[in-house]
Simulated scan of single mutants.
Amino acid sequence: MQKFILLQLIRFLIVLGALFTVYLIFMHTFKFIYPILITCILSLLIYPLVVFIETKLKFPRPLAITVVMLGLLLFFVGIVLLVITEVYQGTAYLAVKIPSYIQTFVSFFEAFFNTNILPLYEKIISFFHSLDNEQQTTIQDYISSITGFITSTGSDMLQNSLAKIPEILAVVPGSLTTLTFILLATFMMTNDLENIKRIASRILPGTVRRSTYDFFHHVKLAITGYLRAQLLLIFISACIILTGLMILRVEHALTIALIAAAVDLIPYLGTGIIFIPWIIYLYAVSDYSLTIGITVLYMVVIISRQILEPKILSSSIGVHPLIVLTTMFFGMQLWGIAGLFVAPIVTVLGNAIYQAGIFQALWNFIRG
C-alpha cells in the first residue's frame, strides 16, 4: 500500500515538474515564438474559408489563400481608414471648438477659485500667522518636503517617459519584420496544412494524436467564440452609444461612438474613459440637460453590457464569467495590467485542455 502511494506521489511530482518546466520554457521563449503561435492560430482560423473558396469557386489553393488574406487585410485597412477619417473630422471640429471650451473652463475655474479657494486660502494664511514661530517653521518644512517629493517624482516620470520614446520607435522596424514573417508563414502553413497534419499523424502516437486534435479543435472554437463575443459586445455598445448621441443631437456622434467602441476593449475602464470626464465637463459648464442625457446613456451602456456579457461569453466559449473574472484578478496580480489581457486567453486554453481530456489523462497517469 505504501509503495503504491509512493509511486503515485512520484508520478504526481513528475507531472508537476513537467508542467513547471513547460511554463518556464514558454515564459522565457515567448518573445521568440509568439510569431509562430500567431501564425498557427491565423492559419487554423482562415483554413475553413480557404477550403470553401477552393471547393466552391474551384480556385487553386495558393489563389484561395491569397484572396482570403487580401480580403481580410483590405477589411481591416478599410476599418482603419474609416476610423482615421472620422477621427480627423472630429479633431478638425474640436480644433474650432477647443478655444471656446478652454475659455469656458478658465472662467469656471476662475469663478470657483474666487468663491471657494481664495476665501479658504485667506483663512489658512490668517490661521498660519496666528501660530508661533516654531509651528510656522515646522509647517513650512513639511510643505517644502512635500513639494520637493512631488517635483522629483514628476521629473523622474517625465524623464522615464522621454527615455522610452526611442525604445518605442526602435520597435517599429522589428514589428514590420515580424508582421511580414507572420503573413508569409501563414500563407505557407495554410498551403501545406494537410501535409503538416499527415506528418504529425505519422509521428505522434494514436492517443497523443487524438488529444492534440481535440485540443486544437477546442482552442479554435474557444478563440473564435471569444473574439466573436467581444466583437458582438463592442458592436452592441457602439450601436447604443450612436443611437443615444443621435437622439441627444450631439455633433460627430459616429466619431464618438467609434472611439468609445475602441476603448471599450480596455478592461474595467472601458467607455468610462470618455463618458466620465465628459459628464464632469458638461456639469461644470452648467449644461444640465446634456449632462443628464449623457449620464443616462452611460448607465444604459454599462447595464446592458453587464447583462449581456455573461450570456454572450458563456454561450461563446463555454466558460462561466465568474471563472473569467477570477482568472483576470489572479492574472493582474501575477503579470500586472498585461494579466487582464492574458487571463482570458489562459482561461480559454485551460478550458480547451479540459475539453480535450488532457487533465483526465494526467490524472489517470498519476493514479496509475
Results as ranks from 00 to 15, higher is better:
Leu81Glu: 06
Leu81Met: 08
Leu81Lys: 09
Leu81Asp: 01
Leu82Gln: 06
Leu82Trp: 09
Leu82Asn: 07
Leu82Pro: 02
Leu82Tyr: 08
Val83His: 10
Val83Arg: 06
Ile84Pro: 03
Ile84Tyr: 14
Thr85Lys: 06
Thr85Leu: 05
Thr85Gln: 04
Thr85Ala: 06
Thr85Cys: 02
Glu86Gly: 03
Glu86Arg: 07
Glu86Leu: 09
Glu86Cys: 04
Tyr88Lys: 08
Tyr88Met: 03
Tyr88Cys: 00
Gln89Ser: 12
Gln89Ala: 10
Gln89Trp: 10
Gln89Arg: 13
Gly90Asp: 04
Thr91Tyr: 10
Ala92Phe: 05
Ala92Pro: 00
Ala92Tyr: 05
Ala92Lys: 07
Tyr93Thr: 05
Tyr93Arg: 05
Tyr93Ala: 07
Tyr93Cys: 04
Leu94Ile: 06
Leu94Tyr: 04
Leu94Met: 06
Leu94Arg: 00
Ala95Pro: 03
Ala95His: 11
Val96His: 13
Val96Trp: 10
Val96Thr: 13
Val96Gly: 12
Val96Tyr: 10
Lys97Leu: 12
Lys97His: 11
Lys97Thr: 12
Lys97Trp: 09
Ile98Glu: 06
Ile98Ser: 05
Pro99Ile: 00
Pro99Tyr: 00
Pro99Ala: 02
Pro99Gln: 02
Pro99Lys: 04
Ser100Val: 11
Tyr101Asp: 01
Tyr101Ser: 02
Tyr101Val: 05
Ile102Glu: 12
Ile102Cys: 09
Ile102Asn: 11
Ile102Met: 12
Gln103Ile: 04
Gln103Trp: 04
Gln103Val: 01
Gln103Tyr: 07
Gln103Ala: 09
Gln103Lys: 10
Gln103Pro: 00
Gln103Glu: 12
Thr104Glu: 14
Phe105Gly: 06
Phe105Ala: 11
Val106Thr: 05
Val106Trp: 03
Val106Met: 03
Val106Ala: 01
Ser107Val: 04
Ser107Trp: 03
Phe108Tyr: 07
Phe108His: 03
Phe109Pro: 01
Phe109Lys: 05
Phe109Cys: 01
Glu110Pro: 01
Glu110Thr: 11
Glu110Ile: 00
Glu110Leu: 02
Glu110Gly: 10
Ala111Met: 05
Ala111Pro: 00
Phe113Gly: 07
Asn114Val: 00
Asn114Ser: 06
Asn114Trp: 01
Asn114Leu: 05
Asn114Met: 03
Asn114Glu: 06
Thr115Pro: 01
Ile117Asn: 01
Ile117Phe: 06
Ile117Asp: 00
Leu118Pro: 07
Leu118Glu: 13
Leu118Cys: 03
Leu118Tyr: 12
Leu118Trp: 13
Leu118Val: 13
Pro119Thr: 00
Pro119Cys: 01
Pro119His: 03
Pro119Trp: 01
Pro119Ile: 00
Pro119Met: 02
Leu120Tyr: 09
Leu120Ala: 14
Leu120Val: 06
Tyr121His: 13
Tyr121Met: 11
Tyr121Ser: 14
Glu122Ile: 09
Glu122Ala: 13
Lys123Glu: 13
Lys123His: 11
Lys123Cys: 02
Ile124Ala: 11
Ile124Asp: 01
Ile124Tyr: 10
Ile124Cys: 03
Ile124Gln: 12
Ile125Ala: 15
Ser126Asp: 13
Ser126Pro: 08
Phe127Leu: 13
Phe127Asn: 14
Phe128Thr: 00
Phe128Gly: 00
His129Gln: 14
Ser130Thr: 07
Leu131Ala: 11
Leu131Phe: 14
Leu131Trp: 14
Asp132Arg: 02
Asn133Phe: 10
Glu134His: 10
Glu134Gly: 07
Glu134Val: 10
